[in-house]
């Protein structure tokens, strides 16, 4: 995402970091998480899971641990947790 201005105190703000966990075989490939991740962390993978869907995969390290994918996923197939030491 691009912003039209950068906050003056942006250097002082502690940005949370998260790590996404995907339980691939639960995924039914609806794409909610990929479409609505505010940091655009996810993309469809090329592989098939046990049900025959393409589960998402993590494409960058931009996750902020907002848990939105976790809340939106209808299948309990994705969640995030805090990542430290970045």
């Amino acid at each position: 995402m691009k912003y039209w201005r950068v906050p003056l105190d942006s250097g002082e703000i502690q940005i949370t970091r998260g790590r996404v966990h995907i339980i691939e075989d639960r995924c039914k490939g609806c794409g909610y998480c990929i479409e609505y991740c505010p940091r655009e962390v996810l993309e469809f993978s090329k592989k098939f899971n046990a049900k025959g869907y393409h589960p998402p995969q993590v494409k960058n390290e931009d996750c902020l641990n907002c848990h939105y994918c976790e809340l939106l996923c209808p299948e309990f197939a994705i969640y995030s947790e805090a990542a430290f030491g970045q």
């Binding site: 639960r26 039914k28 490939g29 609806c30 909610y32 049900k51 869907y53 809340l71 939106l72 996923c73 209808p74 299948e75 309990f76």
Partner: peptide, 14 residues
């Protein structure tokens, strides 16, 4: 009981 019966793309699970 998972996976549930809701279709791919159904919002009920959300």
């Amino acid at each position: 009981r998972i996976p549930h019966i809701w279709c791919p793309g159904c919002g009920i699970g959300s």
